[in-house]
Nucleic acid binder design. Sequence first.
DNA 1: CGTTTTTGACCAGCGC
DNA 2: GCGCTGGTCAAAAACG
Length: 444
Amino acid sequence: MEAGCENMVLNSFDGHKFPLITNTTTRHENGSSINEMDFFSKSNDGNIPLMMSNDIHVKEEKKEQHDQQLQLNLNVGNSSLLTTNRTSNNGGSPNTNNQTGHKADLVKMKRENESLRSMLAQVNEKYASLQRIVQEKIAAHETTNDMKTVTVEDDTKQSLLVPLEFKNLNRTIKIDSNPNTNKNVEFDSPKDGDQGRTVEATMRRVRVSVRARSEASMITDGCQWRKYGQKLAKGNPCPRAYYRCTMAVSCPVRKQVQRCAEDRTILITTYEGTHNHPLPESAITMASTTSAAASMLLSGSISSSDHHHHNYHQISPRSMLSSPNLTTTLSATAPFPTITLDLTSDHHDLRQPPPFHFPFSTNMHPSITLNSNSPRAVMGQMGAQPYNNVTKFSSEQISDQQLMNAAATAVTSDPQFMAALAAAIGSIISHGNDNDNDNNFNRN
DNA sequence: CGTTTTTGACCAGCGC
DNA sequence: GCGCTGGTCAAAAACG
């Protein structure tokens, strides 16, 4: 990855509110304690990741208002609270009226709570159902795809340790050897027969970048890291720090942390490699998110209509992993294939976190019309130099129905894509389940 | 004293 | 082949 914001990409959570960013303290440079932004962590008393918020909106698109039961808006609780807090100070209402009003409010709140529980239960049911489908698809896929079991010798074991983490790299490598099957991911394809080594190398080379606004020097992702180097990269006055995972002796995962040259409030964290050890719960969200991103990159779920002229992809804004305003850009022309999750936005940073949106609302698919007319606009977002090979999905050109259809097709046609999504969603949902009675997500 | 960070040196890949 | 750059190593320093 070049200095600055090259290969960067995606954009997300625009227009949404994150909960207050929590800062944890971590021993760091110069041995001093530094602030560490923790947007994938849990609250003190709950398990909701910070990517979720006090204002949780799990909604389907407006077009699906007939399915009101899926709408989940925990803001209702706030309104109830406000109602409850009304007092007789204004106008001096009689106590009897107050008591009656309070009782009515309590009843109303109770009903709302029941309603919310019901909605949450339904969401959970749907999620479980989807997960079952995912598992069935994966099982079916694995039995029919003989290529899948050959190249990664420890695939099963690794899946147990780190579910779905870069799981389909083997497929990518295999398919790379067959230009007819997967042209859309063009990187580091092995040209010899040394697949064991190339699998390892490729697993290490696939990168997932996370851009987030933070004054902290590092984001907390649940893993333990040891700094092993620092460099001044060309074109960026901010040094790039190199960390390796120390949760296991031989864990190959590295990460680079650097501030964006164009906007130093943006922290760019680039992950590389696959953990070879069980992850703590607090690390699963980040791991799942990054692995989902990488899986999409490697599975070929993302593709361009013009493979030969566009190998830089931006999926926007309603793609994987999250809010309707998330955009994701893939770079296959960079030295390593890189997908960047951009958690920054012009109007909302992590100090004003957006509400969580159920990521299944829409999706993307290779059949989605591409718009390659505005590469410079994309690069403007990326804060990088103009890049010739940019393909941009234009959400404005795609109707919600098209997106939904595309999503359905993508999900049913690509089990690995489903698995990747399920991993990301699963971690979020499971955390949410653990905490459905507590909406205080703030830490400290 | 063990662990972590710092930082200059070293190495590999790439372009010219 | 040479220089540039990114990435890693490892000895020294710092820290708890």
